[in-house]
Nucleic acid binder design. Structure first.
Lengths: 214, 214
DNA sequence: TAGGTTTTCGCCTCAGAGTTGAAAACCTCG
DNA sequence: CGAGGTTTTCAACTCTGAGGCGAAAACCTA
């Protein structure tokens, strides 16, 4: 479960209350029950931590089957990537907290690799899908969106370029409204929204590159 | 398991000898045993059909968990995509055969969707990885490679452009040899090989597009 | 009203994909 | 052995889209 908070990409972690790895941070999850879909199971276990309706996007990452991934017994796990839009701040139990992905604590099992794989998946999909809808609030200005992209990608992004690229692809659209400038003034920013609240793949690829050198 | 044979992308199918779906075509596979890796299991079950050493690339696709995917009982399956280079023609048991992906027979379970998902994964990765190494023989000319790409992508590919793109990215390299022209003549073609026999992601994206109109 | 701030927009540059045509290097047949 | 056919290769051009820059727009505060 990833979200951009305070301008950084953060992951929802849970402090284990059971062996193995008692007391170390880990990804939320649990066992699959017979007759259940993987996604149903994920949502169910997630519901114990956050309000699941806040989860704007959920997608399967990978199924891990290394016999040594659990020190005690042979176990299979399917990892999912979930995204929560910026701005929502769900109630959390005491054993659960957000941690910046760039400075993760020690994690149980292979959860560190899973988290980093999730970040990579997100970064890649920002380039050729509309997945940003799951990171952004319903309404936003280009500057706000630029900050979200920059936080997720890990490098600066040009607002000019971002706007042009996303508009041409029809990923975002202007609402027509403008937002009053904050204190200190400045031209009021146009308000945009994502065209679709579901994952769609753009026909054109096209990476959002980091700014050239210097 | 996909391979390009006779200029078309084909899938290895197995005629089921057990219920359910007795007698219909399906993807090769089998049950996972305790302590086993998913990939180990796949290779083991595949070995019953083909020589596994022929498989140049194997990657996980997706884990299916829909309770209705097996009409009898709740079952989880993890699908893999395997690639066999053009040219090798492994011995096959009588109940196993290659079928063009563009004209699949009726398939058991959700195997049709899995097969098409595999084709999509292959097509996407041809654009930003060196995955072609798993489709091509060790040595090849640009024209041969163009035909492979065209078969996998489903549209024509320009040999000129393909060569330039793959060379600049360092994905393929000239061996220095040339191949004698076939009957009917023509300039002898330069022989190339893939630089690495392992999957590598190119830093630059960049789609190989179908030729413009006409 | 002057000066500061943020957003927006037009224009330019640059790189890489796609196109085209001609030269190169072979064959075969009369 | 030369003419004509075939396939490959290469250089030059076009086109599209990403990235960069600076000026104008539209607000604020003092």
């Amino acid at each position: 479960m990833l979200q951009i908070r305070d301008g950084t990409l953060q992951a929802l972690l849970w402090k284990r209350a059971r062996e193995p790895f008692l007391g170390t941070w880990s990804l939320p999850g649990g066992y699959l029950e017979p007759g259940e879909t993987l996604e149903q199971s994920i949502r169910k276990h997630l519901a114990a931590k956050v309000d699941v309706r806040e989860v704007a996007h959920l997608e399967q990452l990978e199924t891990l089957s290394d016999p040594d991934r659990d020190p005690r017994e042979w176990q299979i796990a399917t990892a999912y990537l979930g995204l929560v839009p910026t701005g929502v701040d769900p109630e959390l139990p005491a054993d659960t907290a957000w941690h910046p992905v760039s400075a993760l604590p020690e994690l149980a099992f292979d959860h560190r690799e899973i988290t980093l794989a999730g970040r990579e998946r997100l970064r890649a999909k920002l380039s050729y899908t509309n997945i940003g809808f799951a990171l952004a609030p319903a309404q936003f200005t280009i500057s706000e969106l630029r900050d979200l992209y920059a936080a997720a990608l890990g490098h600066d992004v040009s607002a000019t370029n971002l706007q042009r690229v996303l508009l041409r692809r029809g990923v975002i659209e202007a609402t027509g409204e403008r937002r009053a400038p904050g204190r200190g003034g400045g031209r009021p920013a146009a308000v945009f929204r994502f065209h679709s609240p579901r994952l769609e793949v753009t026909d054109e690829f096209a990476v959002l590159r980091p700014p050239s050198n210097k």
